[in-house]
């Protein structure tokens, strides 16, 4: 709770602080809980419905925690043209239930795909072997 209060204090109380607050909350707690939504709503003088609506709209925010390590595989057109669909199947197989394989639409590395991102780290020119190694190291 102390951490949440710190986040809220750092961003002020105008409505346009909502996304920056949610980014920090998601990063700090791994999800945006019901209790947190209540606190944010109070802080920004918004209804809980308004905050919930924003949380559910954006792909980056999650309502429930998932502590598993994650890899984001790009599956947009440029990576598709370089074999991302077959790679995604291979990645799922290696990941099993231990690692979460997420889909991302475009990392802006479209000439050297298939690409993936782990945290803020980017990886290009992936093949089955490389993606298995990345997942294995998570």
């Amino acid at each position: 709770m102390a951490e949440l209060n710190e986040i809220l204090r750092a961003h002020g109380s105008r409505q346009d602080a909502l996304l920056p607050i949610l980014h920090d909350v998601q990063a700090a707690f791994g999800h945006v809980s019901e209790v947190t939504i209540r606190e944010i709503a109070l802080h920004l003088n918004l209804s809980r419905a308004e905050v919930s609506g924003v949380v559910s709209f954006y792909h980056d925010y999650h309502r429930t925690p998932d502590p598993r390590p994650a890899i984001k595989l790009c599956r947009a057109e440029s990576c598709q043209s370089r074999g991302s669909e077959a790679l995604a199947i291979a990645a799922e197989k290696v990941a099993g239930a231990r690692v979460r394989v997420e889909t991302v639409y475009c990392l802006g590395l479209c000439s050297v795909g298939p690409n993936a991102m782990i945290g803020h780290e980017v990886h290009a020119r992936l093949d089955n072997g490389k993606v298995a190694a990345l997942i294995g190291a998570l």
Binding site: R14, Q15, D16, A17, L18, L19, P20, L22, H23, L44, G53, V54, F57, Y58, H59, D60, Y61, V104, Y105
Partner: peptide
């Protein structure tokens, strides 16, 4: 600098403005 939250539609200008204001990117 403001950071988006994974919504492609926010590249549409009015949706982006809503997002900047702290709203759903509609």
């Amino acid at each position: 600098v403001r950071v988006g939250a994974g919504a492609y539609v926010c590249g549409e200008e009015t949706s982006l403005l809503n997002s900047l204001e702290g709203r759903r990117g509609e």
